[in-house]
């Protein structure tokens, strides 16, 4: 009985408090409602809008190391097509040069990601090269992508047609995806401060074009196509060659398939 008295006045207090809280929450959420509306307006069905059904495709890439001449046109075209900053710290694709010497030393380099190509042969005194080749690198668009697994907010995802993309509007820039990618395929955009990566030139692919790096490869070392359709150039490529993927032990299930991959490549 005694306790009831103070409780009553408290009830009034509490009601007041709750009322204020509701007001505060509403005030905070008004801008949020507006942005949500705005997003709804921008939203359009990307299936109907482009006459492209992502559920009909499944993309991958083949790279024949024996055909790559290390001209680096792919790395250059990628930067131009995708507005990748020209500074030598940000790459969506690059070309590595491997030189394996007789004494067992392996030297790898990729000056500016090969955007300017590889300059003249440097002569190594007293070194005998036994194997040497170029390896183009790109996001592997893994079937089991560790970057998508670790993204805390759902800002990076795999589309129904098997392309790993980043929603730069939603990315919070925590960089966990960069830590999780075993291939070094991601970077933080220096202006947007969000993660960026190869999109397989998704904006081209939905229009029926091939990715820019494939378009400009003079020796057809890169092949873009369907992974699952019989008549695809990629499937032909995989039938004609012995295929390897990068870091298979990590079970990322890459969809970039290499022909004539050397054991030293990682």
């Amino acid at each position: 009985m005694k306790k009831n008295l103070p409780n009553k006045s408290q009830n009034v207090n509490r009601r007041k408090f709750i009322k204020n809280l509701v007001l505060a929450v509403t005030a905070f959420s008004v801008p949020a409602v507006l942005t949500a509306k705005e997003q709804l307006k921008r939203m359009q069905s990307w299936i109907l809008g482009k006459d492209y059904n992502p559920f009909d495709h499944y993309w991958g890439m083949g790279i024949d190391i024996n055909k790559c001449i290390g001209c680096g046109r792919c790395a250059d075209a990628c930067k131009q097509e995708n507005d990748v900053p020209s500074e030598p710290f940000f790459f969506r694709t690059w070309v590595e040069r491997y030189r394996i010497f007789h004494d067992g030393e392996v030297r790898v380099d990729s000056p500016n990601g090969a955007v300017d190509g590889f300059k003249k042969q440097n002569i190594e005194k007293g070194k005998v090269t036994i194997r040497s080749f170029f390896v183009p690198k790109i996001c592997n668009h893994c079937d089991n992508p560790p970057c998508v697994q670790v993204c805390p907010v759902g800002a990076t995802f795999i589309t129904p047609d098997g392309v790993v993309l980043v929603d730069s509007d939603y990315c919070i820039g925590c960089r966990y995806c960069i830590q999780a990618c075993p291939y070094g395929a991601r970077y933080i955009d220096p202006i947007k401060k969000t993660a960026e990566k190869c999109t397989f030139c998704y904006h081209r692919v939905v229009q029926g074009l091939v990715p820019a790096c494939v378009e400009v490869c003079p020796t057809q070392a890169r092949v873009f196509g369907e992974v699952k359709k019989k008549a695809s150039p990629l499937v032909r490529f995989m039938r004609m060659n012995k295929i390897g993927v990068l870091k298979p032990a990590l079970n990322t299930e890459p969809k970039v398939y290499y022909a004539n991959l050397d054991m030293e490549v990682n």
Partner: peptide, 27 residues
């Protein structure tokens, strides 16, 4: 606060794809 198209195809904003494919083609 969650965008209305979030989760339409998976754990992501469906309109993010629209924004990506809206990029200008240069080649």
């Amino acid at each position: 606060l969650v965008p209305s198209d979030f989760g339409k195809y998976g754990h992501y904003r469906a309109s993010a794809v629209d924004e990506i494919i809206a990029m200008e083609i240069k080649y």
